[in-house]
Amino acid sequence: MPGKRVPEGVELPPFQTLLDTHARDVHRFLVASVGHVDADDCYQETWVSALRAYPRLRSAQNLRSWLFTIANHKALDHHRARARRPMPVAEIPEQPDVPGGDSDFEFAVAELPPKQRTAVALRYILDAGYPEIATMMNISEAAARRNVHEGLKRLRHDLTP
């Protein structure tokens, strides 16, 4: 057979299937992680990195976790880069919030410390379970629960008028 570039026994679905299935959730996760303004850049970087690495994957299991692990790395890179730059006085939103949307919640999530932010975004925006969150963040399940709990406590405080 021609072109044995795919490891034996691993049947990876066409990449387009991953895009169709997960693109919207990856974007929502990144909006919650880095905010609306920077989400598009992180989104593009996430999918280019995923496409680049895809043929080398050893397993077709947990593709969703694999994608969110990449997205989380891009979000953390972004935050690290921003921390090194002088902070702008204020970020001007490109477009007004959609009334009745999730924007308030997502903006508040974006302001949480990194681990809490990721855990809360995975739990409440993507409906991920704690074992899944633990896998994606490479932390224990107990740590995943603790980060979600701490994040929610802070959100409740921030969002209370």
Binding site: G3, R5, V6, E11, P13, P14, F15, Q16, Y54
Partner: peptide
């Protein structure tokens, strides 16, 4: 598309 993914490349896009 699966025969293409298996023998050419899974980097298949619409």
């Amino acid at each position: 598309l699966s025969p293409i993914a298996a023998s050419i490349s899974p980097r298949i896009l619409y």
